[in-house]
Amino acid sequence: MSSHAILTIILYIAILLALSYPLGIFIDRVMTGEVISGGGLFRSTEGFIYKVCGIDPRAEMNWLSYALGLISFNVLGVVFVFALQQLQGFLPLNPQGLVNISPDSSFNTAISFATNTNWQAYVGEGTMSYLTQMLGLTTQNFLSAASGIVVVIVLIRGFARHSLQTIGNLWVDLTRITIYVLIPISIIYAVFLVGQGAIQNFDAYKDVKTVQITQFDNPQLDAAGQPIKDEKGAVITEPATTDQQTLPMGPVASQEAIKMLGTNGGGFFNANSAHPYENPTPLSNFIQIISIFLIPAALCFTFGRMVGDKRQGWVVLVTMLLIFLVVTCVVLYFEQQGNPILTNLGVNGSMGNMEGKETRFGVDDSSIFASITTLASCGAVNAMHDSFTPMGGFIPLWNMMLGEVVFGGVGSGLYGMLVFAILAVFIAGLMIGRTPEYLGKKIESYEMKMVAIAILVTPTLALVGTAIAVMTSDGVAGIANPGAHGFSEILYAFTSSANNNGSAFAGLSANTPFYNSLLAIAMWFGRFGVIVPVLALAGAFAAKKKISVNEGTMPTHGPLFIVLLAGTVILVGALNYVPALALGPIVEQLMLPVIH
């Protein structure tokens, strides 16, 4: 591994811990309702929202009311974003005169942004008006991030409370995390990005003459805008040249900040964080990867403080860091080796596999970014994962298959990891014949049913969705690369959607009614099929009595539990997918020497 990569990872972990620790303490204070000193403006804004919306901040909810409120809130978000896209041609802040979005694409995008997935079948700069980007997509970036965080806070409250039927007030939790945490950090972050060169304006797109004439292969499109293929399934292209380029403009920095901080990942532009207006410099790239893990790491510290045992938070955090280190080293190794097929064609492979990567970032920063963005359910990309080597591309795919629990999405990563912790305790209890308990709460039949639903729903959606797609003509029609790689493209799309990651392997033409509908199902139920049982767990734990530590209690704050938790995540989380992986990236890797 290169010295640059090693130094980047060391610096990354050091800065991440230095920033996330105080943030974790702050989130604890915000979510336990402490008065934040110097927060007069925030307090008055909070009070104003309660007054306008008729919210009694002292009223608490049981878990079912909390869940129904959260589901309704997010459905309203879906309806709003759907309607906005359907009407954007008639609305302001649309200097390019972009037309209304097709119903299936609007539906997919609305579900995608409300579920914190940010899967993008559309091309942002080619289809979305500034109003849609800001009022629809950026707003959902905040609200979906807040939705994830409040769910984990409620689960932690469930552990911390005892003999209570209530778990908090949804509207208070959503308001406080948005006002005190997400918006202030995003404002500072957006200003930093503008300083680095990210754009923030409402100008019309600019046409410029390029320095050189560019030659390219232009894919031929049919009447529906889909690429025409020959009988072998390859896209038919025709040679073309141009000396003109259109530079898209827009309010990019403000969307970029929450896109990374909220682990949303939906880029303003199609090229996402590979676009110089979204991610202009190596420094902005480094800060972007810091911001992806910032809140998920901070929530581990919040967890430790809220349950009254900081070691519990460290155990979860160290488990995440260990898995992160291993998978990142693997993807770095394979990408630094280069692509033997390209080397055989005479391409200089000394810099590693540079296909699909920005020269500004190179192999190291692209590989580290890919690992982080797929471990977290961010999904932003600064390189094309489709162009990674087979095993280099395997890791981002496998990272998502872990269930987005290694840091994961804001809130969703930690609640997913805590579900695995309950499972780990249960398995250990079975092995040694003791009644399992975690953080002073007995794990009984109902809790295990909820854990089973939460863990099994995403692999089911991903694998059944992939199976349907490869068995139907509509599904196969979207593949750009026939064979094992084409299978990987479909598997990646459904894994990314069901786990609410949102990154794309590229190469799959997914903006069709078939994929827009099927992936929307995966995204919605991948999100709420987990949130609902997690909230049920929170309610069940809050109602239980707290039992004191005794000689039969399995310690969950030491190295042994780190090993047990990591093993549970890897075995249970990822083994579901092994047969599918064998048909995609693994067989592709095994075929490399043959092609070579």
Binding site: N62, F82, Q86, A536
Partner: peptide
């Protein structure tokens, strides 16, 4: 066509609410 997808949203809503109520019933408590 838009109404079809709007209908999908309502179906998603109903199914998710059903899941929540099913989980509550499974535990015999809310």
């Amino acid at each position: 066509m838009s109404l079809v997808y709007f209908g999908y949203i309502l179906i998603f809503f109903a199914l998710t609410v059903g899941l929540a109520k099913g989980c509550a019933r499974l535990g015999g408590k809310k």
